[in-house]
Amino acid sequence: SPEVQIAILTEQINNLNEHLRVHKKDHHSRRGLLKMVGKRRRLLAYLRNKDVARYREIVEKLG
């Protein structure tokens, strides 16, 4: 489901952010981070168009 995919991506994004705080010059990982953020944004847009209630619920849960 989109909610699960968004939750997994959010966790991976948070982990990668911590990694990049330590390894500032790791541009390869930064590119992966940007791809993940874009994918999460697309999934959220899809969910917002399909079911606003589910969209609001996941945004509330994940912050």
Rank of each mutant, 00 (worst) to 15 (best):
N49E: 14
R21G: 04
K25D: 14
V59G: 01
R31Y: 08
E3F: 05
I8C: 11
S29W: 06
N15E: 12
S1Y: 15
K39C: 11
M36A: 12
K50Q: 13
R54M: 09
E60A: 13
L9G: 00
S1G: 08
R30W: 15
K50D: 05
Y46I: 13
I6Y: 02
K39E: 14
I58D: 00
R48V: 03
N17V: 15
I13H: 01
N17D: 05
D51R: 01
P2M: 14
V22I: 13
L33N: 01
L62T: 03
I13M: 02
L44M: 05
I58T: 03
R30G: 03
A7T: 07
K39M: 13
H27L: 09
L62V: 04
L44V: 02
N17G: 06
G63S: 12
L20D: 02
Q12K: 14
I8E: 08
G38N: 13
E57H: 05
E60I: 11
L44Q: 00
A45D: 09
L16D: 01
Q5R: 07
Y55P: 01
R30V: 09
M36W: 03
A53H: 13
A7V: 09
P2A: 12
S1K: 07
K61H: 09
M36E: 01
L34V: 08
E57G: 03
A45R: 11
E11G: 05
N15G: 08
V59E: 02
E57M: 06
H27F: 13
V37M: 13
S29D: 04
H23P: 02
K61Q: 10
S1L: 07
L43F: 03
V4P: 03
P2Y: 14
L62I: 11
E60T: 08
R56M: 14
I6G: 01
V22A: 12
K61T: 10
D51W: 03
K50G: 03
E3Y: 05
K61M: 13
D26Y: 04
L20S: 02
L47T: 00
Q5A: 09
Y55T: 01
N49M: 13
D26R: 04
H28K: 14
E57R: 05
G32M: 15
G63Y: 15
Y46L: 12
T10H: 02
H23L: 03
V52E: 15
K35G: 05
E60Y: 06
S29E: 04
L47V: 05
R48F: 13
R21V: 05
R41D: 08
K61S: 12
R31N: 07
M36G: 01
N14H: 09
Y55S: 01
N14K: 10
I6N: 00
V59H: 02
R41Q: 08
N14M: 09
N49Y: 09
K24R: 10
H19C: 09
M36C: 05
E3I: 06
I13Q: 01
D26A: 04
Q5W: 12
L34G: 04
G63W: 15
S1V: 06
Y55N: 02
H27A: 09
S29L: 13
Q5Y: 12
K61V: 08
R48P: 00
G38M: 15
D26K: 07
V37T: 04
R21Y: 04
E57A: 13
K25L: 10
I6R: 01
H28R: 12
V59I: 13
M36T: 03
L16Q: 02
H27P: 07
V4R: 10
I58M: 07
K50M: 14
V59N: 02
D26T: 05
D51E: 04
M36R: 06
A53C: 11
R48L: 07
R41E: 06
I13D: 01
K24I: 09
R54S: 07
N17R: 15
V52M: 13
L9K: 00
S1P: 09
K24V: 11
G63K: 14
Q12T: 05
E18F: 07
A53W: 05
S29C: 12
D26I: 03
I6M: 02
A45P: 15
G32C: 15
A53N: 14
I8R: 11
R21E: 05
D51A: 03
K61W: 15
E11V: 10
K35M: 10
V52Q: 12
H19T: 04
E3Q: 04
T10W: 04
E60G: 07
T10S: 05
R54D: 03
N49R: 13
L47Y: 01
H19Q: 06
V52H: 11
I8W: 14
Q12Y: 10
Q12E: 06
S1I: 07
R56F: 11
V22C: 14
V4W: 12
L9F: 02
K50C: 12
R31F: 08
P2F: 14
T10K: 01
H27Y: 12
P2E: 12
L34W: 12
K61Y: 09
L44N: 00
I13E: 00
E60V: 08
D51S: 05
R30D: 05
R54P: 00
V22K: 11
I13A: 00
E60R: 12
H27N: 10
N17W: 15
I8N: 07
R56T: 10
N14R: 10
P2L: 15
R42Y: 08
L62Q: 02
T10Y: 03
L62R: 02
N15Y: 13
K39V: 10
R21H: 05
L9P: 00
R42S: 06
R31S: 07
L47G: 00
K39A: 11
E18D: 08
S1N: 10
